[in-house]
Design a protein around this nucleic acid. Structure first.
Length: 493
RNA sequence: CGGGGCGUGGCGCAGCUCGGUAGCGCGCCUGCUUUGGGAGCAGGAGGUCGCCGGUUCGAAUCCGGCCGCCCCGACCA
């Protein structure tokens, strides 16, 4: 914001190649996704950004429901003593807690923390609800805001307050909990691919990177256009860590008293930032059709009042017909803006498709369709008979969605290096040269991670799931010695 | 928390070195003419110059303190 010498307010954005970070900030604001607020590190999510988030919510919510989860809601404030109960958990979160010490004009006897995540309060309640194995599993999700007082914030990617969903489950057996954690990871992955057109890697987190309080963390890691990785979703196997601290016990079928097994998992408004950095281009945002609040913007173009009436009637008809075939269409009737100004505006906001209706088109009984990201093999503008353009629109939007996923996947693959790195220095060199995901062998020694962090500013993003592993398993660790496993390195957000 | 930068109409900036009562572009309002890739003309509205204090006849400008924001690093969904 400060010091912007470029005239970006009206004309072009800073190109991605020049300054990706500046480009990102400009896109988020100029596409009207979000704006800075008077509260440090907290953003205002504007209708266009919130509309995208709502689409994400709807899709995920449906997937959670289909797999037996229900929504519930727990308090924003958590007693300080709850958060402190699980040792690793409090160590992980203590530095970023916002604490409420006063209320009702008095100092509180026990401070509350504004939830940074809700494991503690939720499992304390589960403990009340569970007596028998018959009460399990509990499969709940909540849509909520949380607060983590981060040192450095960025719109969507890391804000002090953010919106997310957090799933919390309790199971009678370890195997069942493990299965749940893995199931959710799969849901996240297919959501990201099918809805966001963002293909993540999936796998396990290293000890150093796992969630504070978890036994194991699984994650989706997506590659952004600047070749940095974004942790886009996590699913944690919590074991009995929280159950023990919150006395979440049940009597088993055999009559024994046992602690329950928990999982927790979440995705946040960070996904919107991931969307921006996955598909955006130098003209602005690109929203995949399935998430676009408006999929088709209909633009009447006219000089005279007579023409305006004529094209307006056609625009109405087109928009209504699109609605009937399940396409979210809107008409931009503003008369004080020239067509060019509207083209740029809707392109900046990333609307997948626009339909132009001008006097020439009306005379021919046609409309002109233009995709935000045109098929490189086809013409940019496609004129078609009105009814045909409408009828074809759902298929064209599907095609755009498919193309975006494909493009993102080939960017990821083009930036992926396997089996070419045998030392931490080589890793640093490769990443410095613009590599994205780098696969190597790893001994499992955290000291190697630490060296890579310092030397290459890189971290292990995942120990990849089988599907993503290299054909030939690496035998040597980049830190020297034998590899115990294959890992994926990247610089990350 | 360390390093850097910046706070002046809604937005982006100039003015500050060398104190004299605030200007430009965009946007906004009104009117007319316009509209197939960021319209033109005319008229108009809008500013405690981040905050507090000091120096001075006089402070956006000089001095001191504070606050906020952005970027880079360490920490992180």
């Amino acid at each position: 914001m400060a010091g912007g010498k470029r005239e970006t307010a009206r004309r072009g954005l800073t190109p991605r190649s020049e300054d990706f970070s500046a480009w990102y900030n400009e896109v988020v604001q100029q596409a009207e996704l979000a704006d800075y607020s008077p509260v440090r590190g907290s953003m205002v999510i504007r209708p266009w950004g919130y509309g995208i988030w709502e689409r994400m919510q709807r899709a995920l919510d449906e997937m959670f429901r289909e797999t037996g989860h229900e929504n519930a809601y727990f308090p924003l404030l958590i007693p300080m003593s709850f958060i402190e109960r699980e040792k690793e958990h409090i160590e992980g979160f203590k530095p970023e807690l916002a604490v409420v010490t006063h209320a009702g004009g008095k100092e509180l006897e026990e401070p509350y923390v504004v939830r940074p995540t809700s494991e503690t309060i939720i499992y304390s309640m589960y403990a009340k609800w569970v007596q028998s194995y018959r009460d399990l599993p509990i499969l709940l999700n909540q849509w909520a805001n949380v607060m983590r007082w981060e040192m450095r914030t960025r719109l969507f990617l890391r804000t002090a307050e953010f919106l997310w969903q957090e799933g919390h489950t309790a199971h009678a057996t370890e195997a069942e909990a493990e299965e749940e954690a893995v199931r959710i990871l799969g849901i996240y992955r297919s959501f990201m691919e099918a809805w966001m057109a963002m293909p993540p890697l999936t796998g396990l987190k290293s000890e150093a990177e796992k969630f504070a309080g978890a036994v194991r963390s699984y994650a989706c890691e997506a590659l952004m256009q600047d070749r940095k990785a974004l942790q886009a979703g996590t699913s944690h196997m919590l074991g009995q860590n929280f159950a023990r601290q919150f006395d979440l016990k049940f009597q088993s079928e055999e009559g024994r008293e046992e602690y329950a097994w928990n999982t927790s998992w979440g995705v946040s408004t960070r996904l919107v930032g991931g969307l921006v950095m996955t598909h955006g281009d130098d003209m602005g945002l690109v929203v995949p059709p399935k998430l676009a609040p408006t999929q088709v913007i209909v633009l009447p173009i006219a000089r005279s009042d007579d023409d305006w009436a004529a094209v307006g009637a056609v625009a109405d008809r087109v928009a209504e017909a699109l609605g009937c075939v399940g396409v979210r269409a809107k008409i931009d009737r503003r008369r004080h803006l020239s067509p060019g100004a509207k083209f740029y505006e809707w392109e900046r906001k990333g609307v997948p498709m626009r339909i132009e209706v001008g006097p020439r088109d009306v005379a021919r009984g046609e409309v002109v369709a233009v995709a935000r990201v045109p098929d490189p093999a086809g013409p940019r503008k496609v004129a078609a008979e009105e009814a045909v353009a409408v009828a074809e629109m759902p298929a064209r939007l599907d095609e755009v969605q498919r193309r975006l996923l494909e493009a993102a996947r080939s960017r990821r693959e083009a930036a992926t290096y396997r089996g070419t790195v045998s030392s931490v220095d080589e890793l640093a060199e490769l990443l410095e040269g613009g590599a994205g995901f780098v696969y190597t062998g790893w001994s499992g020694d955290p000291a190697v991670e630490e060296r890579a962090r310092v030397a290459a500013k890189a971290s292990i993003r995942v120990i990849p799931d089988e599907e993503f592993r290299s054909g030939t398993e690496p035998t040597r660790c980049i830190g020297g010695g034998r590899a115990q496993m294959e890992v994926v390195w990247a610089r990350a957000y």
